[in-house]
Design a protein around this nucleic acid. Structure first.
Lengths: 242, 242
DNA sequence: CAGTGGTCTAGACCACGGA
DNA sequence: CCGTGGTCTAGACCACTGG
């Protein structure tokens, strides 16, 4: 007998999706605890082991954080440990140093063909464009140009950016309800042009890292497109191949 | 009452270590199947679930590969899927293209202070130094300088490198019994000097990616130090932030 | 001490691959 | 058809946290 459902999905994966729904709907907010495993097991009418396996996967994907004896919590970009997952620039000696974000401008625009393709919206749709620099220990090492879909970030302003303390993704999460889950980066070496050289205080032509990032929220929806230029004279991009 | 053993280790982790021993000792070789879960459970006098959890972790670390209905196999760098885990250069359009390794030279030397520190050996210890290029679709895009500890790779010669078909790590595995597990990379942008520019067929001063890699085998032992210069005009370094 | 996540077991059954 | 890994259950007990 042929298998009727090629889209077979085990129970724990359905439970996982239900939990994701709860996260997406805001039933449980970043930083808060979700119900205990036994409680979820009763709610969903499955065994604790099945809930466990669902949570295991969500924890592996950094959507949840387990804390023995305390509970399971919705992970948050306000947690300092989350910062360095999306900013892999470290000092020569390997030390991680906190970055300071300095917004330069924030304006509304219409998506061009490329931005539309990457963000999976229509050309001409409203977008928000912002530019900012990152400073490490007083030195400007990164200049970013960031494109955001207007439907999610319509109320973004330079003042909001300047006022907020914390990482950009932490702002996305707390003010816009957009949770960043993962990203892909395309990295190449380029020469500094006049304007980026000025900002980074290096001569025109200096080799810089060009980092083009697409960032995704739940269901692999792209919600940010950015291009950064990194000065890697005293810092470098650290990557773990596992 | 204070906890007597701060080094508490659950059963499944001890089983995991036993399996790692089997891998390290060569009891099960790359590409081969390890015994079934039930058989290992009997051998170690634990339940199948405990063996399962041990194997789960080893599979997550890419040391083992599970194949439903067939068995659990020792992963191998001869598997094409493993190639791209350690070579993240892809074409502009995102397509992955096979690389061809062309060895240039291979010589014996003594470790300097830096090589000794990175490889965790003594300055003056024997090392092997090799240089090679990688060609993609006929173009030379990477030049690598590679440092290996002499005790493991003493019999490495240019002829061995030239004769072997397959990836370098596949050679390490099959001929030297060294299994590469993970690596860390420090990435920066640099300008091409005369010699690297000649090899990569770009003008002196062209921005290149400098990728410095330290590679580890079992027990976090470093077994390779390399520095590569990547030409990223038509290809880029792809990274997933998860 | 109660409540949480973490481990371990034993057994039943399902999905898959190959003979 | 059997052997493999994959799922699910129910229950016992351990380790950790905080009141």
């Amino acid at each position: 007998m042929a298998h009727e459902s090629p889209t077979f999905s085990p129970l724990y994966r359905q439970i996982k999706d239900l939990i994701i729904q709860g996260l997406q709907s805001g039933e449980w907010r970043p930083g808060e605890a979700i119900p205990s495993e036994v409680e979820l097991a009763h709610r969903f009418n499955v065994s604790q082991g099945t809930v466990r396996k669902a949570i295991d996967e969500l924890a592996a994907e950094h959507l949840l954080v387990r804390k023995q004896g305390k509970g399971t919590f919705v992970s948050s970009h306000a947690d300092p440990r989350a910062f360095f997952r999306f900013l892999r620039l470290v000092r020569q000696d390997g030390q991680i140093e906190p970055a300071q974000s300095v917004p330069l401008e924030c304006l509304r625009a219409r998506a061009g063909v490329e931005a539309a393709r990457v963000l999976e919206i229509q050309p001409g749709d409203a977008i928000v464009v912002m530019r900012r620099v990152l400073r490490f220990g007083g030195k400007t090492l990164v200049v970013d140009e960031i494109y955001l879909p207007g439907d999610l970030f319509g109320s973004m302003t330079l003042e909001v950016l300047q006022t907020y303390q914390g990482s950009l993704y932490s702002l996305f999460e707390s003010r816009f309800g957009v949770r960043i889950i993962r990203a892909t980066e395309k990295i190449r070496a380029v020469a500094a042009d006049r304007s980026s050289g000025d900002i980074l205080a290096v001569p025109e032509g200096t080799p810089l890292l060009s980092v083009e990032r697409v960032t995704y929220t739940y269901q692999d929806r792209p919600v940010e497109w950015r291009r950064g230029l990194y000065c890697t004279n005293e810092y470098f991009y650290l990557n773990e191949l596992t």
